[in-house]
């Protein structure tokens, strides 16, 4: 196969081959950027640590991400919810003071999305959790991370591989995930 491709290439004029090389480079460049230079670990407005909350304090994921098992979206806790504990816990820490300030100003905290699926994808947490998936199977060892780092590229092959492996009913139909 590879030989025949080389043989085929040999029939092209050199400028065409140069063009091919350029094109190959272009595609490669896009891939390298996407894979290694995507911001998988953005700096958040509050230095929130999952390690402290989920690791040291062993707070279950769904205590804060209450909607994960019930709706398509896992949901971030309301600022009110943060304050539920931090009215009395660690109130003098500078990051908590920031949270309290947001609450006092009646402003939401502008968290930066780490796991963002494109708008044309229909993804539902509910179905995945009800199918018995653990959070860490996609989100990694969150309890060890101070700042969240994206563990998966969220690309289609990754979705389809898992759907195939787990023999999801209609798991490979386009319209199961695309909308």
């Amino acid at each position: 196969m590879s030989i025949s491709v080389l043989e085929a290439l040999a029939h092209f004029k050199k400028p065409v081959l140069v063009l091919f090389a350029g094109l190959a480079g272009f595609v490669g460049g896009i891939w390298v950027n996407g894979t290694y230079f995507g911001d998988a670990s953005p700096v958040q407005p509050i230095e929130f640590s999952h390690r402290i909350h989920a690791g040291e304090n062993e707070i279950p994921c769904q205590y804060c991400h209450v909607y994960a098992a019930r709706t398509p979206v896992a949901g971030v806790p309301s600022v009110e919810k943060c304050m539920g504990c931090h009215r009395s816990v660690a109130i003098d820490k500078p990051e908590i003071i920031k949270v309290a300030q947001y609450y006092a100003d009646h402003e939401p905290i502008p968290w930066i999305k780490v796991y963002d699926v494109p708008d044309f994808v229909h993804f539902t947490h509910k179905r995945h959790i009800q199918a018995g998936l653990e959070c860490r199977e996609c989100h990694g060892p969150v309890a060890t991370m101070d700042r969240i780092t994206r563990q998966q590229p969220l690309r289609m092959p990754w979705c389809v591989d898992c759907h195939t492996k787990k023999e999801v009913v209609n798991g490979r139909d386009c319209w199961t995930c695309h909308k």
Binding site: D173, C174, H178
Partner: peptide
């Protein structure tokens, strides 16, 4: 555009 398992004739925009 293809036929899916529900008897639907579907159109995949990304393709």
């Amino acid at each position: 555009t293809y036929h899916n398992q529900d008897g639907l004739n579907t159109q995949v925009y990304n393709r």
